[in-house]
């Protein structure tokens, strides 16, 4: 096994555990450290802790199972949304815990549920020809079916990111579709720049990034689901 003593957290832990990805609560720390905004969230170990935190941030909340064995959470029903009371939270927490504890759960993430908005994808991939590229497009569960994304080389600038946003085909979705407010292009551009810079600053460790969805709503722009795939250590 490679020497991990000079590797920063949370990457060192992930490598030490032989993982090829960060757990979401770990990824959130990486994103939050560069100013990418997520709804208030906390990793909790039991239902009481979860309820205490939910009371503080207010309902509704979302809970997500954090497991080194679960990368695609939807395959395991490892995300429950729309929880709106102490009672419901306790029940859902305990149900998730008993269903998924066989997957070495490290905890359950409680997160404030954001208001409805436009679902965006911001991501990063290492292109075999051009190196790291940042992606922007329409997000959500249909992202691969819709396939409306475009790219910039990393690192990028705010001006380039703004052009990237105006380059995707379904501009209608960004301009306030079906009663949703128009997305905050400025805030999205800043988020794109930050993701592109992460790809450079942490290029030893990060292989792929998904922020899908990012939700753009009346309150601002929030990462809601986050994934960081790791490179193999050299």
């Amino acid at each position: 096994m490679a020497d991990t003593k000079n590797i920063p957290e949370p990457f060192a832990t992930a490598y030490n555990e032989g993982r090829s990805f960060l757990l979401e609560h770990e990824a959130l720390k990486v994103f939050e450290s560069v100013g990418i905004i997520f709804p208030p969230n906390m990793l909790t170990k039991n239902a009481d802790e979860a309820v205490t935190f939910a009371k503080k941030i207010g309902y509704p909340v979302v809970i997500k199972a954090m497991s080194p064995k679960i990368l695609h959470k939807s395959d395991y029903k490892a995300v429950i949304i729309g929880i709106d009371s102490d009672e419901a939270l306790k029940n859902q927490f305990n149900d998730m815990d008993s269903r998924l504890k066989k997957y070495d759960l490290v905890g359950i993430l409680v997160e404030k549920q954001v208001k409805k908005g436009t679902e965006i994808l911001i991501g990063m991939n290492i292109d075999p020809t051009f190196g790291p590229v940042v992606a922007f497009g329409i997000g959500g569960i249909l992202v691969e079916a819709i396939g409306d994304v475009s790219f910039r080389a990393c690192p990028t600038t705010k001006q380039r990111a703004l052009r990237l946003i105006s380059e995707i085909k379904t501009q209608k979705m960004l301009n306030g579709f079906r009663g949703l407010p128009p997305v905050d292009r400025d805030a999205l551009a800043e988020m794109i720049v930050k993701v592109s810079q992460l790809a450079i600053d942490l290029d030893k460790y990060i292989k792929e990034i998904d922020l899908n969805p990012v939700i753009a709503n009346e309150d601002g722009v929030f990462g809601v689901d986050a994934r960081i795939i790791l490179k193999e250590l050299e």
Binding site: S20, F21, L71, L121, G123, M124, N125, D127, P128, T129, F130, V133, A135, G137, V143, E144, G147, V149, S150, F151, R152, A153, R160, R163, L164, E167, E208, I209, D210, N212, R227, I229
Partner: peptide, 27 residues
Amino acid sequence: EAGAQAVASHTASLAANDDVTDALFKE
């Protein structure tokens, strides 16, 4: 040119090489 690789993220699965070429040329 670049064939499909096993990828774990949405972004990587969307980033077929020629689309990236298109976007970066435009940029």
